[in-house]
Each structure stands twice: as structure tokens, then as C-alpha cells.
Design a protein around this nucleic acid. Structure first.
Lengths: 255, 255
DNA sequence: CCATGTCGTTGATATGCATCAATGTGGGGC
DNA sequence: GCCCCACATTGATGCATATCAACGACATGG
């Protein structure tokens, strides 16, 4: 291996971080939570309506353009995020530029579960993204007084841990075709929680991103996708795939 | 791939679970925590001496022989464990027998962080093992009244999550040699927290286990070990390795 | 004491995926 | 409307690791 770096380390976050558009400041936006589409899926579901107002006042609703950096590995963790729209890729880089994407965050997902002082991964926007942003201290202080919020956070963390174990099985013990099939099924299921069940699976991330998530090269991802399409299991459509034969796709996952 | 099953699914846990030797029941063993070698490393470090007595009364000190099953995947989670001696392998099996070890638990490690009703992995003893065992309800009830214990649990869970991400990078983006080198360094560091720093790295698990952890075959693990030994970076000793050249071994990890 | 089984190592060969290279394709800017 | 560039696809080839096979070391039990 020792690939010629396809993923150069990004510039320092203060430069790389695109100008974020803040649509709503610390005050006067509490009501926005009331019609938040992902509230029931996110941390916020642990809070009473009364608490939610106070909680919302701790956050900023903020928008990022595609490719913006939300979190930079090894930098001090200043903010934590509750994603409300768009997709974020979480990844680690090796010194020589090899990249492993450790997860894709979808609307409702929480970034910064660890509440650690230093980020253990980088995160940037796949497309335009909206989020509720908290300062780490602000959130941390609120957390002190709300054990049920901590419980919810722990619930999310252990769920992440289970997903991480799934991913270890995938990376260590599955073939390329199984990896791609499992990725499509898992992605379908994650979107289903947000948008309801559909045969159309949105894939806003690039083939390179998918490869770096599955431990494959772009070419192999592409080949496996075309193979699935040739076998009439999926159709490749703009920005995603449509599943034609759920049963066969699930069978390929080799659970 | 589609390997002929090297890891047949184990028999039902009630059969497979070896007769556990309970050295101390629910009462009269509180003082044992006082001289527990791993207390400072484990969950228990979150508890005051006064609390510890009550906490200890919830647990049994229990011993398992090699190969005993502590946790069976997809079965109801009855117990959680605080490992005090020995090594436990945590793993998932695919239907065709492929196995991925998702972690090795060392003394001081906690099994059952998720507090979930159903186990998401299996766990069995690599060699003889000792643990403090709690019922899930008992521990869960105690947890209700002790937010700082929950905080500690969350801390451990997010630490596990970071380790899981490390492992994803390893499985997805490292070569066989880098995998083995990184495994040896990581294992050395984990033992160092328990026993202090040594150049001798105990490896009680088999080559097969190491392979199933690193996403490699036994043969490849063996070959990489001999290569490291040939290059005078390590010496293979009974039940482990001795590191001769820490600098070169660390360099091979390709952080 | 030897028979037996498990584990680790080593060698020969096969293969799945990476690598290298070329071509197609769609979107954004001017 | 057209150029440009990033992205996706496809094909040819190579290599890292899996697979298949054999053997030695060691422990266990009759």
C-alpha cells in the first residue's frame, strides 16, 4: 500500500472553516425547536417542553456550505453539534494521507458525544448542512443538572458503539460485494428513520467517501455498484440508488 | 471468501457456560474491594469508600475457567461484569462462521456498558478469569440514584468508542504488518496501565484470535510476527513477545 | 510411553482487490 | 454555449494476502 496521499491534511481549521451563516442567535429562537423535524430522533427527545426552551437558548442554529469543517482532529473541542439537515462525514487521517471514514452523520445525529477536550476525529459537510451548535462548556454545564440528558447521551453513545462494532465486522470480515450491499441496506434503514421507508436510497457522498468508509478503493465501489445494477438488484440514479430487489440485496449482506 | 466455518456457533449458553466458581456471595465480601488491584482503573473509581460497600453488596466475585462464555450474542443480557483478572475476547459471528473479535477485555475493563436488554456481542474467557458480576437490574437500579456513576460509565463508553474508531482505521486502511505492529504497541500500552511499563507484552490469546481481531488469517499473523522477529524488532517468547526496538515498532504503526 | 489433538510456523499457489491508465459524463463559471 | 474540472466508470495488470498443504512443538490422556 503506502498510497500517494489522496487526502492531504486540511489547512488549519480557522482557515478551512467556511464562513458559517447563523440564522438565529442565542435569544428569541426557542420556538424553533417546536417544529424541528428531527427532534424526536435527537438528544432533544430527552427534554420536557419547558426544559427545551432553556436548552435552545444555549444553542445557535447555524448553516454550513458543502466541504466546511465542523470538527478538526486533535484540535481543542469548542463546539458540539446537533445535526438538523444535510450529511457530515467523520474521519481520521493517517500521516501519509490514507483516510478512514468512521461514520456519516445524518439529520438528528449528535456530534461530540464524548464531550472530550480534544477532538478524536475530523468532521466536514458533505453538502450544505444545518445544525444546532452548542459550546462545549455551555452544554457541559447544562448536563450537570440534567441526569436524564446524560442518560440519553449515554444511550446514544452505546448505540454508536454498536454501530462501530458492526462496522468492524464489515471492515474485517466481509468481501467487497458484501460491504457495498450492507452499506446500502444500512443507509436505507437510517434514512427510513428520518424520512420513512423508501426504495430510493440517497447517497450524497462521493464514491471516494464510500470507499474510505468501507475500506475499499473508488474503483472497487464503482465495480460492485455496477455489478449490483447488472444483476438487477439496484438501479443507479442521480445522487443515490433505487433498490429493485430488497430480498437479494439483504441476502448479499451475509449477516 | 465464504470460508468453511472455522468458528461454529457455540451451543446454547446454558450448556456452554462452564460451572462458575463463586468465591463470595452477596454478603460479607465488601472489604474485598479495598484491596482490589484494578479498582482505580475500573468503574469503581467513581465511587466513594462509603458507596463502595453498598455497591459491592450488589455483586458477586466469580471465577470462570478458560473458554467459558460470559456473554452470548442475541441472548437477553442478565449480567454485567467488572473484570478483575484474566482476558476476555468480545466477538461477533457471521452466519457462515466468520468471526470478528471487536475487542479484548483486560483486568479493570467493564463488560456491559450498554446496559441493553439484549447482548450485541459474545464474550468468552481466553484463560481463567475473575470478575465482579452484577445483575443488570441491580446495577441499573443503583445507577438511577448515582449520576456520577452514570457519568463514569459514559466516560468509559466514549473511550471505547474512540478505541473502536482506532480499530476501524486499522481494519480499513492498514497493511498486515502495520496491523500487527499497532496491535503489539496498543497491547503493551494497555498492560502498562495495569502492571506498569514492560518490554514484555503478554499475549494469552491465540494467533487465530489475533487474526480475527486484525482482520487477517492465522498464517499472515504468524508471518508478520516472524518478520518482526527476523528484523530484530521483537523476540517471540512463550505467551507473548518481548519488544527489542520500540522506536522501529512504533514507526511501523504509521499513525 | 506413545497416541492424539491443538497450535504455530513455513512453503507453494491462487485470487480478490488495488493500482495504473484511459475514457465517459455532468455541473458550474464566464 | 462552451470550456473546464471533478467525478464515475471500465479495462489491464500486479501484488498483498488468502488459501491449501505439510510439518514440528507441545500438551493431554490413556
Amino acid at each position: 500500500m503506502a498510497t500517494p496521499a489522496p487526502h492531504p491534511h486540511p489547512t488549519r481549521p480557522d482557515e478551512a472553516e467556511a464562513p458559517a451563516r447563523v440564522t438565529c442567535g442565542h435569544h428569541g429562537c426557542e420556538t424553533i425547536c417546536a417544529d424541528c423535524a428531527v427532534r424526536s430522533l435527537s438528544v432533544c427527545s430527552a427534554l420536557e417542553p419547558g426544559e427545551l426552551a432553556h436548552f435552545a437558548r444555549l444553542s445557535q442554529s447555524i448553516h454550513y456550505p458543502a466541504r466546511a469543517t465542523l470538527i478538526a482532529q486533535d484540535e481543542p473541542a469548542q463546539h458540539i453539534y446537533n445535526l438538523t439537515a444535510g450529511v457530515v462525514r467523520l474521519y481520521r487521517l493517517l500521516a501519509d494521507g490514507r483516510r478512514q471514514i468512521v461514520g456519516f452523520a445524518l439529520p438528528g445525529d449528535f456530534l461530540g458525544l464524548a464531550m472530550a477536550k480534544t477532538n478524536t476525529f475530523s468532521a466536514d459537510a458533505v453538502g450544505p448542512v444545518a445544525a444546532c451548535r452548542f459550546t462545549r462548556e455551555g452544554f457541559g454545564q447544562y448536563l450537570e443538572e440534567k441526569p436524564h440528558l446524560l442518560r440519553r447521551l449515554h444511550e446514544l453513545a452505546t448505540h454508536e458503539l454498536t454501530l462501530a462494532q458492526d462496522q468492524m465486522v464489515l471492515l474485517g470480515r466481509r468481501t467487497a460485494e458484501e460491504k457495498v450491499a450492507a452499506f446500502l441496506i444500512a443507509t436505507r434503514d437510517r434514512w427510513a428513520r428520518i424520512n420513512g421507508a423508501h426504495l430510493h436510497v440517497p447517497l450524497p457522498m462521493s464514491r471516494q467517501d464510500i470507499g474510505d468508509f468501507l475500506g475499499l478503493t473508488v474503483e472497487t465501489v464503482s465495480r460492485m455498484m455496477t455489478r449490483l445494477a447488472r444483476d438487477k438488484i439496484i438501479v443507479i440514479v442521480p445522487d443515490g440508488v433505487r433498490i429493485l430487489d430488497e430480498a437479494r440485496l439483504e441476502a448479499l449482506c451475509a449477516v
